[in-house]
Design a protein around this nucleic acid. Structure first.
Lengths: 182, 182
DNA sequence: TATTGTTATACTCTATAACTATA
DNA sequence: TATAGTTATAGAGTATAACAATA
């Protein structure tokens, strides 16, 4: 049974004081938009991608708060679940995570009892990675949440458009090949 | 005349040694793909957005290396250029940058002689932000590079598809409204 | 020698708290 | 009291160097 952790404190430590019990809802940070000229930026695909990605990740974070999973953590347990027994480095690389940073991520998941490393008999250097029972269970719940987010996205952009977006975003990755072959 | 700065050193400091003159091109990090099952992840729009955004930003960084501009810095000088004389906080908020973090960004641009703060006569608290001559000049060069990137993107995804992507990515932002009204 | 996993860093980005000057 | 700008700081993400165990 995984508990939703208290969101970790960030920024300068609060001076120990009465604890004001602030009304968080008041934060009118996005109240009046100041109508600057943004037209040129809005035409830049990179900028549009960035804003869209942030919006989806924010939404994700809100939805997955109860499961205490970041987008990256979700992607990791999903890939482990679909590819049990693979080497640490294989999992990491498939997600574009450097193996050195993946160590800490896995430590975290292992300490939470969601994943485990097993020494490979064939190759004493490598670890085969698996989900635990708890990990599988959490993954199932996470899958449901992910489906809900996808449904919300379909509602926002349209059914066909959602599929189209996936297609077009895949094409954007051709940029890399383009430069590699140049 | 802005110089392309040496990319800042990161990570653990190298032990002072002969300097191996490594063949960087050998890094076969993405050589053989290990064919894991990624199907489920690939269907997640959030993941697709993330990968696409990273690809475009990487491409951007490569293209803008000579100008020594990050995507964020480009967006800042662009918005200042299009909205000269606006308050610091207005510029920052229009880009979704917290005013506290914007201070350092502006410091940086000001030290490079690209932007400047002028105390407002009307309101002694606020700064009106402008580009310098050098800033305007750099912005012009940056605009050309940006157009080139956009052209590369059009080549990668198609002319109509590029326009469609912008439309659909704007719709993705409805997610936020959805949650706000819920 | 090369690979797998690891530790130790270090820079960037982003977030919060609190201070100063001004309104 | 509220706002604009600022400083200080902390955490997350991501990058590099180097080492140990194993191949």
């Amino acid at each position: 049974m995984e508990r939703a952790k208290e969101p970790k404190r960030r920024g300068r430590p609060a001076r120990i004081e009465p604890a004001p019990e602030v009304d968080v809802e008041t934060g009118a940070d996005l109240g009046e938009t100041v109508d600057l000229d943004m037209a040129e930026l809005s035409g830049a695909l990179g900028y549009a991608l960035r804003r869209a990605q942030l919006a989806v990740f924010e939404d994700f974070t809100a939805r997955f708060a109860a499961l205490d999973l970041t987008p990256a953590q979700f992607s990791v347990i999903l890939v482990i679940g679909l590819n049990p027994g693979r080497k640490q480095t294989e999992i990491a690389r498939s997600l574009g995570i450097q193996r050195t940073n993946f160590v800490v991520m896995l430590d975290h998941l292992e300490r939470r009892g969601l994943a485990e490393r097993r020494r490979s008999a064939a190759d004493g250097r490598s670890h085969a990675i698996f989900l635990t029972e708890a990990g599988e269970a959490l993954l199932e719940r996470a899958r449901l949440m992910q489906v809900e987010q996808e449904r919300a996205l379909v509602e926002a952009v349209g059914e066909e458009e959602h599929a189209l977006l996936l297609t077009l975003l895949a094409r954007v990755l051709r940029l890399k090949d383009g430069r590699a072959n140049a």
